[in-house]
């Protein structure tokens, strides 16, 4: 299955990646060959087979509702690219 430039650009937008024009041919080729590999699955008979999301048949453990965290803002924001007044800064958000 071959992906075209339009599809690549659309997925890239969804994933918030920019693919430079000169790299598009390389990406279309490699992604198409991966999809060809994956295409083998279509021949598999999976009738009445439950999808398997987890390797083990375990169930979710629940955590007791208790506050266990303390304020570590200074430590956590030391590694942030841009902060002010304890806030993370990003270019203006428009609703």
């Amino acid at each position: 299955m071959a992906l075209d430039k339009g599809e690549i650009t659309k997925i890239a937008k969804l994933a918030r990646l920019t693919i430079n024009d000169e790299k598009i041919p390389e990406y279309t080729a490699s992604l198409s060959s991966i999809l060809d590999l994956v295409e083998q699955l279509q021949a598999v008979d999976t009738n009445n087979i439950e999808p398997m999301a987890h390797p083990l048949d375990a169930t979710q453990r629940l955590r007791e509702d208790a506050v266990t965290e303390t304020n570590q803002r200074d430590d956590y924001q030391k590694i942030a690219p841009a902060t002010e007044d304890g806030l993370y800064l990003v270019p203006k958000v428009i609703d």
């Binding site: 994956v38 699955l41 598999v44 999976t46 087979i49 439950e50 999808p51 398997m52 390797p55």
Partner: peptide, 13 residues
């Protein structure tokens, strides 16, 4: 793709 792969995953297991 995704659901098919998850089903195949069970066949493998």
């Amino acid at each position: 793709y995704y659901v098919k792969a998850q089903k195949t995953r069970r066949l493998i297991k």
